[in-house]
Deep mutational scan, measured.
Amino acid sequence: MGFKLLSKLLVYLTASIMAIASPLAFSVDSSGEYPTVSEIPVGEVRLYQIADGVWSHIATQSFDGAVYPSNGLIVRDGDELLLIDTAWGAKNTAALLAEIEKQIGLPVTRAVSTHFHDDRVGGVDVLRAAGVATYASPSTRRLAEVEGNEIPTHSLEGLSSSGDAVRFGPVELFYPGAAHSTDNLIVYVPSASVLYGGCAIYELSRTSAGNVADADLAEWPTSIERIQQHYPEAQFVIPGHGLPGGLDLLKHTTNVVKAHTNRSVVE
Rank of each mutant, 00 (worst) to 15 (best):
M1P: 11
K8D: 15
L9T: 09
L13R: 12
L13I: 02
S16Y: 15
I20P: 05
A21W: 13
P23V: 09
L24E: 11
F26H: 15
S27M: 07
V28A: 11
S31P: 12
E33T: 10
Y34W: 09
P35S: 05
S38A: 11
P41Q: 04
R46Y: 15
A51V: 08
D52P: 07
G53E: 10
W55Y: 04
S56W: 08
S56L: 07
I58A: 06
Q61N: 11
F63R: 09
A66S: 07
A66L: 08
A66C: 13
A66P: 10
G72D: 00
I74P: 00
V75G: 02
V75N: 02
R76G: 07
D79I: 15
D79L: 15
L81D: 00
L83F: 05
I84T: 14
I84G: 11
I84D: 00
A87Y: 01
G89I: 02
G89S: 10
L97P: 02
I100Y: 01
G105W: 14
L106T: 03
V108C: 05
V108G: 07
T109Y: 04
A111K: 02
V112H: 01
R120H: 14
R120W: 01
G123A: 02
G123I: 01
G123F: 00
V124T: 04
D125V: 05
A136H: 02
P138D: 06
P138C: 12
S139E: 06
T140N: 02
E145F: 06
V146I: 12
G148D: 10
N149S: 12
P152K: 11
H154V: 12
V166W: 06
G169T: 05
P170Q: 04
E172C: 08
E172P: 00
Y175K: 06
Y175R: 12
A178G: 09
A178E: 10
A179G: 07
H180F: 00
S181C: 09
N184H: 01
L185R: 00
Y188V: 07
V189L: 06
P190M: 03
S191N: 07
A192D: 06
S193Y: 14
V194A: 07
L195D: 00
Y196S: 03
I201T: 12
Y202G: 08
S205N: 03
T207A: 06
N211W: 13
N211D: 07
L217N: 12
A218D: 10
E225W: 03
Q228D: 04
Y231I: 15
P232I: 15
E233D: 06
A234F: 14
V237T: 08
G240H: 03
G240K: 01
H241R: 01
L243S: 06
P244G: 09
P244F: 11
G245P: 01
G245A: 04
G246S: 04
L247I: 04
H252R: 11
T254D: 11
T254P: 09
T254Q: 07
N255H: 03
H260T: 04
N262I: 07
V266K: 05
E267L: 08
